[in-house]
Design a protein around this nucleic acid. Sequence first.
DNA 1: GATTAGGCTTCG
Length: 864
Amino acid sequence: MTFTQCSSKRQDRIYLGFASAPVLGTTYLNFCVSTPACFSILQAYRLPSSAGHGDVMPVRVLSEGAGPGAEVPKHLTRIPISLISTSTDCSNNTVKGKVVSKCPPVSPASQNFILKTVIQEDDSPQNAASQNPSINVFLFGALAWDFNQTVNQGDLVVVTGFTVGKSPTFNKDKLHPCNLQLKGDDACVYVSHLPPPPPDPRALRTSKRRSALSASAEVSRSAKAPKPAYVKLSDLPIGPVVNVYGVVVFFKQPYKSRGDDFHSYFKITDQSNETIKCTIFCKKLEDHPKIFQNGDIVRMHRVKLQQRNDSTWLVKSPGFSALTFDGGQGRDIEPRTSSLSFHFDQEDRRIVEELRSWSASQSILPPVPTVRLSDVQPKAYFDLTCQLLAKAPMDSRCTVLRVWDGTKCPHNLQKVIVDPYAMEGPSSFSKKKESLIANILVYDNHAVFSTQLKPGDFLRIYNLRVIPGTAKVQDLTSSQSEEEVQQLAFHLHGGTTYGRGIRVLPENSPDVQELKRVMETLPDDEEEELNDSDLLEIWSTPPESLDAEAVEYSTERSCSHDVQPVTLSEVKRSHPGRVHHVRVQLRSYEPSRLHQALKLYCSKCRSMQDVPDDEEVAGLFSEASKDSGPCSPPPWALSGQVRVPADSPGSPDRSLSVHLSTQLMSEDKTKELIFLMGSTLEETCRLSAGYHNIVPVRSSGGDMALLDLSAPFLFRGRKRYYGCKQCSEAAVREPSCADGLELIDEKIVAEALGVQLLQFVLLMKLELQDATDTLDAFLWRDAESFFGVKAEEAAANQEAQNIIRQTMEFLCPAGGSTGERPWMDLCLTAYGAEDDGGQNQTCYQICHSTITRPSSTRPNANPA
DNA sequence: GATTAGGCTTCG
């Protein structure tokens, strides 16, 4: 049996409508013959008196097709839009452009219509969207009405008889400093219509799979609504609302912005070779274009080009809607949308097919990073189409997705320890299926998004990173030998760069269909029979995701509280004074240098202090030895000399003065307790090997006194004891051992000396985590039972320290991932406490909880 | 009604 632990090496740091205007009455239409350019003329001819205009108005609408055409008078000179200024001579000039937007006519005064349209130079030398000049054109009165009836987006117009005004909206729309105003007898518009699309009997067939309701909605829509015109991306005017089609060449999945909406960022291109950035904000995720991969074709209605920061962006405007199509040639043309009602006909089909074949003939798309698990390469980034089998939150920022795509990755894959209770979906699979499963750790925003995923979902995970690493594999058959094996981990880092994200694919998507076909060739889990050896393995080994040590380490609650386990977020919401049971992982802990976890605690004044380090203590000894004036020992003491062996060969032994209790002398217990004066810390430690209790003393004004209580008042073997400065009334007194049998220990000495004994405690702050939250909890009162180690022992012996260190390393492996941290069942108490600023806060303490260790690290089982 | 964000890898 082997266990693995991932220690993947960190690499270097490594987004026209038709106004339902009141009926004006009859407009008189007069048809003329078109020029080769197929122009029609819109000219005021006559308006009924009911419209409130003069009897005769120069309105004439001339339609293309059969009949005589119209010609733009030859004496008129065309001027480029870019050269229009308020000083332009209007009488003999024309302006020609494509209608890129047409607003509904408005009627500020009753029946006095105004219509705004934007025309754009269609044949200027430059082809860039921002370069093609366009201008606002305002039409008044009956001309506005006729224009609305006759002219469509995309039509080519020539206007004459205009006046040039200053554009009040130039600052906003950046279109043109001037506008054209068409009113009065001289105003005239020549129109060249876009050819109408041929009728297509298949128009409605694409909706065959849709419900009758939506199909009928389409029919009714297409019967009533005008056909939208689409603007080529190179012709996009800045400002006006337009409709567009484009091939996606870059995209990010919609993600929650810092504002209120989801944000989609993508780029589209078309046959004009213009690439346009699109940035769409929508509250609802389903309103965003459903882009699955580069090459997809997006149709957007009611968007506008906006100029900002030296660049242009396509943004949505009111009434925005989007359809998305697979961009693959020959694939079904099935619009992706959540809208029940949308217009889609043979014209759309033609546009999609044209874009597909155009895009197939170009090299506009980046290489497809979609690979299967069988083909993954270390260090690569790739898009994975897969099925989610199970998932489990690892902590508040990480979720593991257990996925498969029916192929077997030839590399070793990272194992992840998952709490079976936290797993959504099966917590184990057959051995065969298990070998096809990849554990994908998704972080941050993706972990949040993953809460919406359900086992069984088909997913595409974008920009998944393959991280090569090594795992320590312990082969128990060869006792303690460890070998390192290469393995791969899959991470979906937080953020959206390079389109990182997760998308649920619909079941009918061709990629999912393909995936299903592969999976269907594999035997079902249930069909696999368990044989004897499998059974044996199940009995004798833990689940594969647990490592060998984890089997032996476990946490237990020893309390008798009858409460159900709760999540950390629930703990945080409850009031202080309660007991909670939680199932958590250790995210981090303080102090990282474990010796700093040792504290000295006074049970009387409840103060806590750090254990002084050796340097500080040595300083106190050296200070004390300077006060070596004459000293009269107390009457109960006998004074003498003690020889301190030299610390190195060649140097002389040193003699120090000691004082002993007369009573102990009489009992021949000379080794039990000595009062030692003038020694260094080091000498005191050396002597502590031969004397059970050593109390360092000094001379103070001729009397014998204890050292400053920052130093230990007592040395007992390797243990040192400290007193509370605040609560002690220290004086050198003879310990009383009434029966003479009592062992002299720190308590007896402390009591005799009037020292309030400080207690060794372990104090740690553990950052706990579960799927819902993190929480800082103190481990203090029950720290000794948690580790099974006395704090006093930890202060004095290496073995005890090792146990604590190993336990912490097991609970929170250095450099280890969340997946490698075991789950702990803990009992927490919540209590109110004042912080340094006197503010009330809730604190948490771990209690009644124990770690049980494997035998190899149990105290005394394996003395070093 | 405005805001959000506006690509260009990596904490885990």
